[in-house]
């Protein structure tokens, strides 16, 4: 009886570990931060600092005097200019197969984007959106500038 209870606890702990890891799998990292840059995660806004991990569904908000440089796990490079709002809509990357998915949005402001390893193997698994366009890539470096005054 006691043994089985212990087993249950271990099982629960194991599930928590597995689920916890799946939930918290990092999508990337903040590399360069200038001025006021914040990350909104699960409704809470905190300052983003160099070295901080980024996760799926994070919203990055760059103030009028700021800029930010981010990398995603597949070596995608991103920079955000002043007055920008950027969202990691979905991200998954398997370093063994280089398969995955990377969908990001620039809601406001300007972004420079250099595709990473996912796009190299499967360009269709990568997209960049604004409120008016969706972009597909073919091994690309480009800039997107947008405004939320539609």
């Amino acid at each position: 009886m006691g043994h089985s209870k212990f087993g249950n606890v271990m099982f629960a702990a194991g599930m928590l570990l597995i689920c916890g890891q799946a939930w918290a799998a990092d999508a990337g990292i903040a590399k360069k931060i200038l001025g006021d840059v914040r990350v909104v995660r699960a409704g809470t806004s905190t300052p983003l600092k160099v070295g901080d991990p980024l996760q799926e569904l994070d919203r990055i908000i760059v103030a009028a005097t700021g800029s930010a440089g981010l990398t995603l796990k597949d070596e995608t490079l991103i920079s955000l200019g002043p007055n920008s709002t950027f969202v990691i809509d979905s991200f998954a990357f398997d370093a063994k197969t280089n398969q995955g998915r990377a969908d990001v949005s620039i809601v406001r402001g300007a972004m420079r984007y250099v595709t990473g390893l996912i796009a190299k193997l499967n360009p269709a698994a990568v997209s960049v959106s604004t409120t008016t366009v969706v972009m597909g890539v073919r091994g690309t470096e480009f800039i997107v500038e947008t405004t939320d005054e539609k």
Partner: peptide, 12 residues
């Protein structure tokens, strides 16, 4: 886009 060039992380 000077700020974007400055903020871009270095390539691997």
């Amino acid at each position: 886009y000077k700020q974007l060039a400055d903020a871009l992380p270095v390539r691997a």
